[in-house]
């Protein structure tokens, strides 16, 4: 897994609520058997016209935001499917951090397992950052995971909460499976107990 520590980038505003996983990456693009390459279809319906050309009104198509690595979005971001293709598509495109008032549960889990940082903030603070992000090329944010701080373009600092274990894994790029395998004995013990109690 990729490490996440500190990130400085332009932030793109996406002031939509309930951005669902079909908007992030429609099901018809899930036919790959690899994790990579999905970035080109990220936000496909919002981003492209029917003939495949760019929709000029979509934020990531505006020159100022082309290289944005941070997204500021509305409530309930990532709702819908369990497809990990959603964070894969965001990461593959280059988005490493999303800030929103709330996220759907499965999407939230999937994202941190791929090294993407999701930051949940109260609505007023997201509204403020949304305004900041609206300043085009001047909307540079710095996200510091160690300090749990976002510094906005006006230098104002906003603190954020993050689960201690997730933070540890993100900062060190740790893979869950390796960590769990160290607990093999505990899993064996559980299996023995369960087999005795529920033999069916």
């Amino acid at each position: 897994m990729e490490k996440f520590d500190k990130l400085t980038s332009v932030a793109a505003p996406l002031p939509l609520i309930n951005v669902d996983t079909d908007m992030i990456i429609p099901a018809r693009f899930l036919k790959t058997i690899k994790r990579t390459g999905l970035g080109s279809d990220l936000f496909s319906t919002l981003r492209f016209n029917e003939d495949g050309s760019d929709r000029e009104d979509f934020v990531l198509n505006k020159p100022a935001y082309k290289d944005a690595e941070i997204l500021v979005a509305g409530d309930n971001f990532g709702c819908g499917s369990s497809r990990e293709h959603a964070p894969w598509a965001l990461m593959d495109y280059g988005i490493k951090c999303v800030i929103a008032p709330s996220f759907a549960d499965i999407f939230f889990n999937n994202s941190s397992k791929n090294g993407m940082l999701l930051i949940k903030l109260p609505q007023e603070q997201v509204d403020k950052l949304m305004q900041d992000a609206d300043q085009g090329a001047n909307s540079t944010f710095t996200v510091d995971l160690e300090a749990q701080e976002i510094t906005g373009p006006d230098g104002e600092v906003i603190k954020f909460e993050v689960d201690a274990f997730k933070k540890h894994c993100l900062l060190n790029g740790l893979d869950d499976i390796g960590l769990t395998m160290q607990k093999d004995q505990k899993i064996n013990d559980y299996e023995e107990r369960q087999k005795a109690a529920q033999p069916w």
């Binding site: 499965i106 889990n109 999937n110 791929n114 769990t180 395998m181 899993i187």
Partner: peptide, 19 residues
């Protein structure tokens, strides 16, 4: 019962557990 992402599918296959 609940839905999981692909990293978790791999975690279950390898360890029969989830965090």
């Amino acid at each position: 019962s609940f839905g999981i992402g692909t990293s978790e599918v791999e975690h279950v296959l390898a360890t029969q557990t989830l965090l």
